[in-house]
Design a protein around this nucleic acid. Sequence first.
DNA 1: TATCTACTTTATAAGTATTCTAAAGTAGTA
DNA 2: TACTACTTTAGAATACTTATAAAGTAGATA
Lengths: 137, 137
Amino acid sequence: MLSSPEYIEKLRKSGLRPTRQRIKICEVLFDTDKTFHFTISDLAQMIENKANVKISLATIYNTIHSFEKKGYLKEIAVNSSQTYFDTNTTHHHHFYDEGNKELFDINNSEIDRIKINKDIPGKKIKSVEVLVKVENK
Amino acid sequence: MLSSPEYIEKLRKSGLRPTRQRIKICEVLFDTDKTFHFTISDLAQMIENKANVKISLATIYNTIHSFEKKGYLKEIAVNSSQTYFDTNTTHHHHFYDEGNKELFDINNSEIDRIKINKDIPGKKIKSVEVLVKVENK
DNA sequence: TATCTACTTTATAAGTATTCTAAAGTAGTA
DNA sequence: TACTACTTTAGAATACTTATAAAGTAGATA
Ligand SMILES: [Mn+2]
Ligand SMILES: [Mn+2]
Ligand SMILES: [Zn+2]
Ligand SMILES: [Zn+2]
């Protein structure tokens, strides 16, 4: 939960110019204690609701990708036609409800360590993600 | 590894008419001991190579979706712009190489049972999938 | 075998998410 | 203030997938 001057600082430190658009996106994404999951169109909607600023889709895409590159966001592998992002950048896993397309965190402490007894010659592990699909009882 | 008459039987039993197109797709997908992963465009390419028949993209999509519905194929959640399918319908997990976009199986025996100490009220687990992203060493 | 009907295939259009383009705007610097 | 590199933007382009509706076919029936 940072204020605008702090986002400006954060952006500058990342080598990103603190534009009106980037600051607004920071506010929408990080002005809360809770982390959350979103798609680009979710985010566009959120920005529209918080109103006052109008940001083009191209800029939203650009910004989200640069934030992801800087490590401020994570992309989540949900099989879907849309890409999901997560403001929770810690190592964790997900429940996914295909019905309402909602994601829920499974923290590292809520899942047993995954041990894989196989490796691929010449390759090393970059990440391990568990996706638990759920449905209504 | 079945012959055409057997695919015809299998299709009929599934309530799918054994058309020239569906039989050819069965041959391409199931005429091998090994299971494999593919995208729709991979499959279209394979069909073109095995030649003799020309199958429209719409039919390939339709057929793959009906095979999936019948349980002859599984869709794999790889974050990507393309949908991956798997002729291995047993419960297993995957390595994914983002570089060359290749999937490799991790059999159930090669991974420790995943125990999740969390549940979502009103929801039940439908599937648990582990995706291990790998890169060149 | 000829006929009928529901199912299937097909070309092509439509839909949708994402990226590209290149022109106009802006931040930081001198 | 002027300059330059970076950024934003509208709109075009791309790519995957689904929808449409007309033509074709499988299986059943007479
Ligand atoms: Mn990305
Ligand atoms: Mn599907
Ligand atoms: Zn999360
Ligand atoms: Zn597999």
